[in-house]
Design a protein around this nucleic acid. Structure first.
Lengths: 141, 141
DNA sequence: TTTGTCTGTTACAAAAATGGTTACATATCA
DNA sequence: TGATATGTAACCATTTTTGTAACAGACAAA
């Protein structure tokens, strides 16, 4: 299982609920139920993508780099995964075979439409939406 | 990298081009550039999903279980992957935390829309389409 | 300026998933 | 009966993901 996307979304949603107060990797880790190093590794990738910033030193921690309504799940996906990793192609099918010679080009074209559809849907949810959903769930149950 | 989907699609496209002649796992493996056991493992899953049949014994091999224009890439995806495996959730976030308590339910709902969009797009391509694309590529160079 | 806190990163181990190889019982055709 | 091919299991190597420990450097607070 690759839960990096789910954990990264959890982190960002958590940061949103902190409302400007820096959150330490230890605090975030306790919400996710994992260890601080894993959180810091993911935060490092999210920071490289411009989604979060961090303050070192006492009283420091992680913050959203911009308002949660301007961070989408597509941003999260792109921060973590290179393109074409949802349905990776197999390498070097037999070039002597009429099918093997062209299957990857054909697949790439068809699957790029699939990824586009997926990305369009990912882009429709923001971290602010996530936080709102979580708040609603807390109010109701 | 998980290339099972790509390889399975390759297999089915190859079977389509065989036009009713049973293909041995060794023949298919040579097109994919892998080993016959891997092919047989995938064929076994495809057969369970009703997409292929196999004939044991001399002169045997694998066949499409129905016409290629009635097998979509969505069928392939469903034959290989359980639901919710594209973006797996992390298990047991902290139930003491307002975010941890509800993040997975919220994520599941939002991501199910994403998978639906993806599946709708996968359903638009059939194995016959794939074979046609490959044939066109061969005609053109 | 000193002390304590927290990040960023590395190293290494553990666990899980994927793919490759071998082997063999069983089914089927000729 | 003999040759062929599937289905499946066992086992290993490789890669990816996750967990754990360690530590230099940045920063705040006293």
């Amino acid at each position: 299982m690759n839960t990096r996307f789910a954990v990264a979304t959890h982190i960002l949603t958590f940061l949103h609920t902190q409302d400007g107060r820096p959150a330490t990797s230890e605090l975030v880790a306790s919400s996710v139920s994992t260890n601080p190093t894993l959180i810091r590794r993911l935060l490092s990738e999210l920071a490289k993508a411009g989604l979060t910033t961090s303050q070192m030193g006492a009283g420091g921690g992680a913050l959203l780099a911009r308002p949660g309504n301007r961070i989408t799940l597509l941003d999260v996906h792109r921060a973590l995964d290179a393109e074409g990793t949802i349905f990776p192609l197999h390498q070097e099918p037999n070039p002597q075979c009429p099918v093997g010679r062209h299957i990857n080009g054909v697949l790439r074209r068809r699957l790029s439409d699939v990824e586009k559809a997926m990305e369009a849907e990912l882009a429709r949810t923001t971290i602010a939406d996530m936080a709102q959903d979580v708040a609603n769930a807390n109010r109701q149950g």
